[in-house]
């Protein structure tokens, strides 16, 4: 899901990074001191999720939990994901320090989108299982969609790669949806105040 340094063109990197930076500035302005601890938890959870492999047939999938982070934090997702991406780039080699803006856009924008979608009255009235499945599914869906679009428009040679990435990740979206559903059902049962519905 991460774009490494050296993959995208200069123009694509700059344009997408500027958009991500605007999101990060807005998030920083809205982040109050009380929310710093929850933002750190989400950041750590995003980082740790990349180590945990969920089996799917002979392959393994690692979660990104963008939807879950989105409904917990809203705009602060930009801060949580920025920090996690920076640590992943420097400590694990995932992504990179130059493409961090692009990766931030790919991962944090879906979180904020899920946050707003989750607040729609019609969505709130859905059955819990379906609602939480959609939280996980749509977070990954938008991230993969943005990733594919950025690759597609960055260089002509990435055309086939972008289609294939999208198709291959449909499975990830479904698994992410299912695990997020169980995670959120667990949180609702054990720590109901966390989910601001």
């Amino acid at each position: 899901m991460h774009i490494s340094d050296g993959v995208l063109t200069f123009e694509a990197t700059i344009v997408v990074s500027v958009v991500a930076l605007l999101g990060l500035i807005k998030a920083l302005k809205e982040l109050d001191n009380e929310a710093i601890s929850l933002t750190s938890v989400a950041s750590a959870l995003f980082f740790v999720a990349s180590f945990i492999h969920i089996p799917f047939g002979v392959a393994q999938i690692h979660l990104i939990l963008l939807g879950v982070i989105g409904i917990l934090l809203g705009w602060s997702s930009f801060v949580a994901i920025f920090v996690a991406l920076l640590l992943q780039a420097l400590l694990l080699g995932y992504g990179g320090v130059v493409s961090i803006g692009v990766n931030l856009f790919i991962m944090a924008t879906p979180s904020v989108m899920v946050y707003y979608l989750y607040r729609i009255h019609y969505v709130q009235r859905l059955n819990d299982r379906l609602k939480y499945f959609l939280v996980g599914f749509s977070g990954t869906f938008f991230a993969v969609l943005f990733l594919s679009l950025i690759l597609y428009f960055s260089k002509e040679e990435y055309g086939y790669a972008s289609y294939t990435l999208f198709l291959v990740n449909i499975v990830t979206m479904v698994v992410e949806g299912i695990v997020s559903m169980f995670l959120l059902l667990f949180l609702k049962k054990v720590y109901p105040t966390l989910l601001k519905e």
Binding site: S37, V41, V48, I52, V179, F182, L183, F186, L187
Partner: peptide
């Protein structure tokens, strides 16, 4: 298996929130 992973994530998330708090 997916339910187990979901519950594990939920559990470590709550523990982390408590530690962080």
């Amino acid at each position: 298996s997916y339910q187990t992973y979901g519950n594990i994530f939920g559990m470590i998330c709550i523990k982390a929130i408590k530690k962080s708090h």
